[in-house]
Amino acid sequence: MTSLGPYAAFIVAAYAMVAAMVLILIGWIAVDYRQQRLRLRELEESGVVRRSRRSTMDMK
């Protein structure tokens, strides 16, 4: 750590905090993705249809 100079502890701590935040954000996105897919599945099972699945005749 001496090669980083007198601020080595600060530099290492800053990088560790950034790495932790990136991992937390990745986890949060993964959990939210699963929740959104589950909600979409529930809506489709209840009869709600996505606009992209409708044919052009259904939109008239």
Rank of each mutant, 00 (worst) to 15 (best):
L40Y: 05
G5R: 06
E45D: 13
G27K: 13
A13L: 03
Q35M: 03
I11S: 03
A9G: 02
A13P: 00
M21F: 05
E42P: 00
T2A: 15
R41S: 10
Y15W: 08
S55V: 03
V49Q: 15
I26R: 14
R34M: 03
K60T: 05
S52F: 01
G5F: 03
Y15E: 02
M59F: 09
R37V: 01
R50A: 05
M21G: 04
V12E: 13
M17W: 07
E45F: 07
M1R: 05
A20Y: 02
P6K: 13
K60Q: 10
F10W: 04
L43K: 14
V48D: 02
R54S: 03
L23G: 06
L25N: 13
F10T: 06
A19R: 04
E44Y: 09
M57F: 02
L4G: 01
S3M: 09
T56L: 12
A19D: 12
G5W: 07
M57G: 04
I29Q: 15
A13W: 01
I29D: 12
K60W: 02
V12F: 07
R53Y: 02
A19C: 08
E45Y: 06
G27C: 13
S46M: 11
D58R: 05
M17Q: 10
L40E: 08
Q36A: 13
L25P: 00
Y7K: 15
L40D: 12
R41A: 09
S46G: 13
Q35I: 01
D58A: 10
S3D: 11
E44L: 07
W28D: 06
G47R: 01
I11D: 02
G5N: 02
S46N: 09
A9C: 02
M17K: 14
A19P: 01
A14L: 08
F10M: 10
R41W: 02
S55I: 04
T2K: 15
Y15C: 09
A19M: 10
W28H: 14
L40S: 10
R50T: 01
Y7S: 10
L25T: 02
I26G: 03
M59C: 01
W28S: 14
S46Q: 11
S52T: 06
D58C: 07
Y7T: 05
S3N: 07
Q35K: 15
I11P: 02
A13T: 12
R51P: 00
R50M: 04
D58M: 09
M57E: 14
I26M: 04
E44G: 01
D32K: 15
Y15S: 05
A8K: 15
V31R: 15
A9F: 02
L23A: 14
M1T: 08
L23H: 01
I26C: 06
A20M: 10
A30M: 12
A30G: 04
W28G: 03
V22S: 11
Q36V: 14
Y7E: 12
M17G: 11
E44Q: 14
R50E: 11
V12H: 02
R41D: 06
A8W: 09
L23P: 00
A14S: 08
F10Y: 13
M21I: 04
G27A: 06
M17D: 10
M57I: 04
Y33C: 10
G5K: 12
R51H: 06
I11A: 14
G27P: 07
M59N: 03
V49G: 00
